[in-house]
Amino acid sequence: MRVKLKIWRQKDANSKGAFVNYDFDGASPEMSFLEMLDALNTRLIEKGEDPIAFDSDCREGICGACGMYINGYPHGPVKGITTCHLSMRYFKDGQNIVVEPWRSKAFPVIRDLIVDRNSFDKIQVAGGFISTNVGSAPDSHAIPVIKEKSDHSFDSAICIGCGACVAACKNASAMLFVSAKVSQYAQIPQGKIEAKERVEAMIQKMDELGFGNCTNTGACEAQCPKEISVINIARMNREFYVAKIS
């Protein structure tokens, strides 16, 4: 099948980027979107041209490395999947496809479709952990956890840190990402001890890094490949106010 691609090309962080058109007829419906780009890159390389740079690693939707803005959607137009799982069978023969990197002040472009998501790590470093040293843990069954709470904690914990929430949000807000981590720990006894410090530190870091503010549009939830709920954001808000007034 044939696709008409318009892809953002940018040499490095300091260069000015631009869209470049590629009329590519080497796609097939069994391919994933990234395999289609691989095939396009092979042609570019064989011609001695710079291939399109993009991040990807596990190619099974769990590492969070891949991510591009495809025809107006982070990870493309199919709900609940990452770019690596986006199949070409969702596109029509001859379709125009615009491919852009995540756009956010906090995610500067490094090259082509690769952005720097280090700010996500910085937020986690600020407080996304439970302070237990190796060797000091009691037996696992010494801390029973209500199944429902544990399951909800898991639902928050499956965030892959891809940045689609920021990319989707009209304000480039990182609230869903941050709240998923805060929520994971807020719901289990192990995490409650430093809940106050955690939520304060993580939000402070998030604000410093230049993400926008949440206006509850819900775009993050709609575009999250792991379908993480905005309930987490409400929970984080609650955690934050409780931390501040207690």
Partner: peptide, 28 residues
């Protein structure tokens, strides 16, 4: 807040689809 939000995305997308769950939230 709105000014901060605009600053948070200095380069806009070329093509943006309608992804918000709450339609009017975009135009507050």
């Amino acid at each position: 807040l709105q000014i901060q939000n605009w600053l948070a995305r200095p380069v806009r997308y070329k093509k943006m689809a309608e992804t918000q769950i709450s339609f009017f939230s975009k135009y507050m």
